[in-house]
Structure formats: structure tokens, C-alpha cells
């Protein structure tokens, strides 16, 4: 929790600068704030993940962690700004295309669809309490029971 508050304090001034010097700093400052962090449940034995694996996990092609534990995929609603950014910038797939992929696999019974949560708070809570869980948030912050993965 301490780490969480510290993180908030460090981000707030950045917001203000952004507002004041918007035209100049928009490109430099805001993407840094909005960068999505990939989080996993603390029991997942990984420190980093490459872009291909992350993509394979989110298109439901990779369903197990290297140690054999099933992966439980969490997502925010299709129109959530953090989801849109994560899909486009981190995965490189449009949100509508992700939904197509999930629908094709889940409605044909080939895979379970990802679990949709309402907001980032719920995302953290569910990822923390679900063995093998993966999710994402808008901020790279330390949080008890959750690991942030480094993206290679």
C-alpha cells in the first residue's frame, strides 16, 4: 500500500506539467503515464515475458505457464481506455479484432473466453487472488501479491 501511494504522488505532478505544457510535453510525458503494465499473480514463476508470448496468451494460443500451470486471462471491457491502449500498443491488435478472436474460440467451445472485469481496481484484486492469473493496469506500480512483468 505504501508503494501504491508513493506511486500516486509521483504521477500527480507529472499530470500537472502535462496540462501546463501540453503541446510540448504531450508526446514525451503522457505515453509514459499511460503505458500499460502487465501484472501476474505472485505465484507465477516469471520475471519477464517476451512480446510474442504475451500476444499468444491474449489470443488464447498459449494456455499454460512454462511450469504447466493454467493461465487465467483477465481483461477490461472492450471500450475501456486502458484496454484500448493495451491492445493497440502492447499487443499490437485492435480491440475489435481481439474480440473476434475470443468469440471464435469461445463460442465454438475451443477455449474459454478471458475473464472480463469492470475496472482496474477489480483487475488488481482478481489477479492477486487467482492462481496463474495475468492482467494489465495503466500504471507500473508495486502492489502486494502482484508481480509486474518486464516486457522483453
Amino acid at each position: 500500500m505504501i508503494a501504491y501511494h508513493q506511486a500516486r504522488r509521483t504521477i500527480r505532478p507529472c499530470h500537472r506539467i502535462c496540462l501546463l505544457l501540453w503541446p510540448l510535453l504531450a508526446l514525451l510525458c503522457c505515453p509514459a503515464i499511460a503505458l500499460a503494465g502487465v501484472i501476474v499473480e505472485a505465484g507465477v514463476e516469471l520475471r519477464s515475458l517476451d512480446a510474442t508470448s504475451l500476444r499468444n496468451i491474449y489470443i488464447l494460443r498459449q494456455t499454460r505457464w512454462p511450469d504447466g500451470q493454467p493461465i487465467v486471462v483477465f481483461v477490461l471491457p472492450d471500450n475501456h481506455p486502458v484496454h484500448e491502449r493495451f491492445a493497440k500498443d502492447t499487443l499490437g491488435i485492435y480491440p475489435y479484432r481481439l474480440r473476434q478472436i475470443w468469440d471464435r474460440l469461445s463460442y465454438s467451445g475451443m477455449a474459454g473466453a478471458p475473464i472480463e472485469v469492470r475496472n482496474e481496481t477489480e483487475m488488481r484484486t482478481r489477479v492477486r487472488s487467482t492462481p496463474g492469473a495475468i492482467g494489465y493496469t495503466s500504471k507500473d506500480m508495486a502492489h502486494e501479491g502482484i508481480k509486474t512483468l518486464k516486457l522483453d
Binding site: 498459449q62 494456455t63 467451445g109 475451443m110
Partner: peptide, 25 residues
Amino acid sequence: HQSDSHQIGARLGKVKIPYGLYNET
């Protein structure tokens, strides 16, 4: 059979028929 990158399995019952790109859904 299931590894982190490959799966093999069997479906039994009233099964969806794989046909082209859109048939199953």
C-alpha cells in the same frame, strides 16, 4: 497433451463441424 505452446485433444458428443472460416460460430 498440453504444453505451454502445443495442445492435442479429442472432442466427443454433438460436435461443431469445422468448415471454412465462419461455420462453427
